[in-house]
């Protein structure tokens, strides 16, 4: 298998000693079929044990290793060296505070995720003994795509709106709200609308579409948000323009 000397330019920040970030260069010999994460691990094992980054599954499902790679938010475990002929610049995800090196703090996302109530809300709960809620394959397909979100927060790093206005709930959390709204077993849309259909929610989105372009698992949050805007507009029309509030 072909080996190649990979040149990495890695963002470093240590709160103990630094007030600003800086870049450090590493050169490691890597197999051509490796991913950027493999190169970082080799740096940590052989050159510099003080380099810090998160990772776990190495198969693009745990969402730990999100970072900026040549300016693009990507999962390091799913970014192949073969596509990067030159120096590879690796930085922590933008729009999040940097704790250290490539490690960012996703607290804001975690708080916003909770606010959209991403769980099944039922007015009439059916006892377990009565078996499953029936759901046809067609009904399943209405939301499954949006249930694929791995919470890697790449979309938050891609979204300029989130970068500028931090109160924006953001793509992944809103897409998960849509996931539950679209689920035939759920009855909680009205509750979620209190957060979703606001200036912090879908109306802050200006449809740049970057979230969907960077999503590693093709959730297409932009689609979810535009659908929610359309549905919210219909709600408004029903409430304000139809006799009896459309009830």
């Amino acid at each position: 298998m072909k080996e190649r000397l990979i040149r990495l330019e890695v963002f470093r920040y240590n709160p103990d000693t630094d007030t600003e970030g800086h870049y450090q260069h590493y050169e490691v010999s890597c197999l051509e079929e490796w991913v950027v994460l493999d190169a970082l691990n080799k740096v940590k094992e052989t050159l510099d044990p003080t380099l810090n980054f998160r990772w776990s599954c190495h198969m693009a499902v745990c969402g730990s290793c999100g970072m900026m790679i040549n300016g693009e938010p990507r999962l390091a475990c799913h970014t192949f060296l073969r596509n990067y002929p030159g120096t590879i610049r690796v930085e922590p995800l933008v729009h999040f505070p940097v704790e250290r090196d490539l490690v960012t703090a996703p607290d804001d996302f975690m708080e916003k995720l909770k606010r959209v109530k991403p769980w099944i809300i039922r007015k009439d709960k059916q006892p377990i003994e009565q078996g499953e809620y029936r759901q046809t394959p067609k009904e399943l397909l209405r939301f499954r795509q949006y249930a694929m979100c791995i919470n890697c927060t790449l979309c938050y790093a891609a979204c300029p709106e989130y970068g500028l206005t931090r109160h924006f709930i953001g793509p992944a959390a809103l897409a998960l709200a849509h996931r539950y709204n679209q689920d035939s077993r759920d009855q909680g849309r009205d509750e979620r609308q209190e957060v979703v259909a606001t200036k912090e929610g879908v109306w802050e989105c200006t449809f740049v579409g970057a979230c969907s372009e960077v999503c590693p698992v093709h959730v297409d949050p932009a689609s979810a948000l535009q659908q929610m805007k359309i549905a919210s507009s219909f709600d408004w029309i029903k409430e304000h323009l139809l006799p009896g509030g459309g009830k």
Binding site: W119, I120, K125, Q126, I128, G131, E132, Y133, R134, Q135, T136, P137, E139, L140, F143, R144, A147, Y180, D183, R185, D186
Partner: peptide, 22 residues
């Protein structure tokens, strides 16, 4: 089966038969 049904009630997107059963 109780636990798997519980998970279904919490929203797990299990694959379905055409009649809507798991």
């Amino acid at each position: 089966p109780k636990e798997l049904l519980q998970l279904e009630h919490w929203g797990c997107p299990w694959n379905r038969e055409p009649d809507g059963s798991v």
